[in-house]
Design a protein around this nucleic acid. Structure first.
Lengths: 340, 340
DNA sequence: CTGAAAGCGCTTACAG
DNA sequence: CTGAAAGCGCTTACAG
């Protein structure tokens, strides 16, 4: 390998100034067509590539977005919720479409966030993704906000704060699922998922669930709600506990697919049939949902759209627009876990 | 927001030169302890962050690794093989542990790769991950190699080329799975997976399969091998075709879990029982494997280890060591799809 | 242990 | 349309 070519090398060969090279390569209208073509030809020949560090340093922007994917340290260390993985895929694509690079970083919720990408001029803005302790989380949001960092987040709305948030319409989605269960003639629906501060999304889904019950004139039975974090194991254990208590129910709402999948395992182990004895629904529509037995009825979140909107929103924010908050509707996907 | 602080601001307040600030912040032994502490305190107070563009431009390295995740355009546009997603997770973690940032980029195999991260000084090296057309792929490898790019790849070995490759011991894994099936008394094993140029990994697994058969003194029946790409749908269709042809088999080896899961669907639809009529094995141990019905026996690839080794290898390569090629053993995970 | 100075490779007013 | 020059914010020989 010989040395990397610089714009000066090109300038020398083209017999023009380095400034002109810079302009020609950026397709500036200020430069003569002929000159431009000559310069570009030489650049290609020398396999010249702009040094991004130099460009970014000079122009004070990076054309890069950072994605912070955070998790509770409660989750085991190798598995990321497939839903977020799917979001990651769509965000990567959306960035590529806009000509932005994506810096990905996993963070433990309880650590100091390594969120200096923007401070550090490595990124123009940040996308936040993940579940985790809400109180801890909010502290960090406030901090980011005070530093003037450009960021958008995925999730439930944060109260008392003006942050650009994109999320699924969890309340409506929860309502829809519970109505679906009632429509199938189910009377007693268990809800597995934390109402704690760890996943506000789950809480919204629960609200939707309650709303549907009330709307139908049913009473809400507190015994039927059991806390659980966002893992298959948590769903399994919570459901097992519920079954052990002898509470009776003919349907179960897992606050996310992973929980629902764990619930299915517990229900089957207990000797009950799905959907005959217990109909089950989840939330997210992760790839697995279609492959469990029986396939899981769920509320699909449109990750492709979500990724695109997150990126669009962030770029708008960077461009100086007001932070926008939006809800994306979920879509009911009926499968075997609720269809006799 | 007031202006971002620079090292000059700190120098001014600390009453030292900017050079000393730079040294102090990098914990250079050249600087007096007292001075260092003072400088660091002021830096913290001003919420100072090193400008990475300036640092990288000056020091000519980026402390960033780029991950190129490529796919055939044949696969549908939203789904990435969960196995690669899992690799992505472990690579991110491994990078973080080494203090490197990770730039992620999805690429269509047939496009010109946007692999200029290193040329462009945005990354010190590149990790390649994915399935795809081998011929196309090799062309690009040669190109990267000629450009002197530092990269390591995940996959089967590439012939006639000295590239740092890390992969699963697919031949041994394939052998192990087939031996497991024979051990369970299965006589006629179908193999679903392309022997074409699209996934050399699959070909190695097939080789292992054949090796096991030969070792046991069995004949290899060409009718029992059907090509399929690496999707659930492809596995489903290939198995359906095999069943339609009336070829008889009592076991089936899917070249990856996704294929095996598709095969399970086809077999069930055909009215056969798993594992009673047909025992099924896959490869990878993606999260789904444990949730299909029945749970899938498979060869687990250790993605945590793989991610760590890929990153370690790349950093060694960047540091000037020789490219190393290694195989990671897979581990047989027995589940219901082969256990009566 | 510290400082003055050069320079990484660009972009972009400024002047023509 | 083009060029000379300044400067983005650092790191690091060099000299003391």
């Amino acid at each position: 390998m010989n040395m990397k070519a610089t714009s000066f090398d090109i300038a020398y060969r083209a017999g023009v100034s380095q400034s002109t090279v810079s302009r020609a390569l950026r397709n500036s209208p200020l430069v003569n067509e002929e000159t431009r073509l000559k310069v570009q030809a030489i650049a290609k020949e020398l396999n010249y590539k702009v040094d991004k560090n130099a460009r970014n340093l000079r122009s004070q922007q990076s054309n890069t977005i950072a994605l912070l994917l955070f998790e509770d340290s409660t989750s085991d260390d190798s598995q990321i919720n497939p839903f977020f993985l799917s979001m990651l895929g769509s965000i990567t694509r959306a960035c590529a479409n806009k000509g932005y690079d994506l810096l990905v970083s996993f963070q433990q919720m309880d650590n100091d966030w390594h969120a200096e990408f923007e401070d550090t001029n490595k990124a123009d803005g940040i996308i936040l993704l993940g579940y985790g302790d809400y109180v801890e989380y909010k502290k960090k949001l406030v901090q980011l906000h005070e530093q003037g960092t450009h960021f958008v987040r995925w999730g439930a709305e944060v109260k008392d704060m003006q942050v650009a948030t994109l999320g699924c319409d969890n309340i409506h989605g929860g309502m829809q699922l519970t109505q679906h269960l009632m429509h199938k003639g189910r009377e007693h629906c268990a809800f597995i998922g934390t109402a704690s501060r760890h996943a506000p999304e789950f809480n919204d889904r629960y609200k939707g669930h309650v709303k549907a019950l009330k709307k139908a004139g049913k009473t809400v039975d507190a015994d039927l709600q059991v806390d659980a974090l966002y893992t298959e194991e948590a769903g399994y254990l919570a459901t097992k506990e519920l079954l052990a208590q002898g509470v009776s129910f003919d349907s179960l709402f897992g606050a996310c697919d992973l929980i629902a999948i764990g619930a299915i395992r517990a229900i089957k182990e207990h000797g009950l049939k799905i959907p005959d004895d217990v109909a089950v629904v989840g939330f997210d529509d992760i790839p697995m949902a279609n492959f469990v037995n029986p396939p899981l009825t769920t509320a699909k979140q449109d990750t492709m759209l979500a990724g695109k909107l997150l990126v669009d929103n962030l770029l708008n924010l960077i461009a100086g627009e007001e932070p926008k908050t939006m809800l994306i509707p979920s879509q009911l996907i009926e499968r075997g876990s609720t269809n006799i």
